[in-house]
């Protein structure tokens, strides 16, 4: 079966920095793919290419086997790709429900915002997801880090995309809220409607929810195995071995 999403020899530079050298990546339908790698390895850059925020310098991105040029976030969204950014992309000054619908607002008469409708939908959706916040009317600035992250995740799930990119969605979560998001990922997977790329530094969580793990190093994918065939030990060893090697190469302790 053709993967829903493929990257072929994708490269991305920022001035002198080569964030991604040559990335080949496949995401199968209904699959949950874990993406790991050191800080600065280029994980965020990779998903920002897939959601249309950045454009690759070279290489191809294929959707259902057909090459696509993702020119903007809006276009990628229209193709069914949604993302939770590492920085969450929330606007502190706006209410929770305006943030939920930012960039895809409901409008009514004379193209005025349908605030009542958006407020109701946001409340319903957050309740259904078990996200606990004081009210959908509060400014996002007043929420805790974990609550903000929950809003960002809820926003990306709301649109029922076919491809969901989660960039460290658990970073600010408490154990309980983290479990809530992991359960959400499992639910989505069980429904089989969506394929997910999830970035995390917690390998146990990755092994817990993912079907497959990819390791990003030196701007390319250096490791690709089903989670069933790997272990926490192996993943840790991979990353630490890399660190040891770099240390001996560098010569200093």
């Amino acid at each position: 079966m053709t993967p829903v999403l493929q990257m072929e020899r994708v490269a991305k530079r920022f001035g002198a920095v080569t964030a991604l050298r040559e990335v080949n990546l496949n995401l199968a339908a209904g699959e949950v793919l874990g993406l790991i790698g050191d800080n600065g390895a280029g994980k965020s850059t990779l998903v920002k290419l897939l959601c249309g925020f950045h454009q690759p310098d070279s290489g191809h991105i294929l959707l259902d086997g057909e090459e696509v040029t993702l020119k903007s976030v809006r276009q990628a969204r229209a193709l069914g790709i949604d993302i939770v950014y590492q920085d969450l992309a929330l606007i502190n000054e706006l209410s929770v429900y305006h943030n939920m619908f930012l960039g895809r607002e409901h409008v009514g008469f004379a193209r005025l915002l349908s605030n009542r409708r958006m407020r109701g939908l946001a409340r319903e959706h957050l309740d259904a997801m078990g996200v606990r916040i004081p009210s959908v009317d509060v400014e996002v600035a007043k929420l805790s880090g974990g609550q903000r992250q929950a809003i960002a995740v809820a926003r990306s799930v709301y649109s029922r995309s076919r491809i969901l990119l989660l960039d460290e969605p658990l970073a600010a979560m408490g154990a309980k809220e983290g479990a809530l998001i992991l359960d959400l990922v499992r639910d989505l997977k069980a429904r089989g409607e969506v394929s997910i790329v999830i970035i995390a530094h917690n390998y146990a969580q990755i092994l817990d929810v993912c079907d497959r793990v990819n390791l990003l190093q030196h701007g390319t994918i250096t490791f690709d195995k089903p989670t069933a065939e790997t272990s926490l030990q192996e993943l840790t060893d991979l990353v630490v071995a890399e660190y040891r090697k770099a240390r001996t190469r560098g010569g200093s302790p």
Binding site: S72, V73, R77, D87, L88, A89, L90, I91, L102, G103
Partner: peptide, 8 residues
């Protein structure tokens, strides 16, 4: 940045 990321 966040606004641009959100597709504004």
């Amino acid at each position: 940045l966040g606004a641009a990321e959100a597709g504004v």
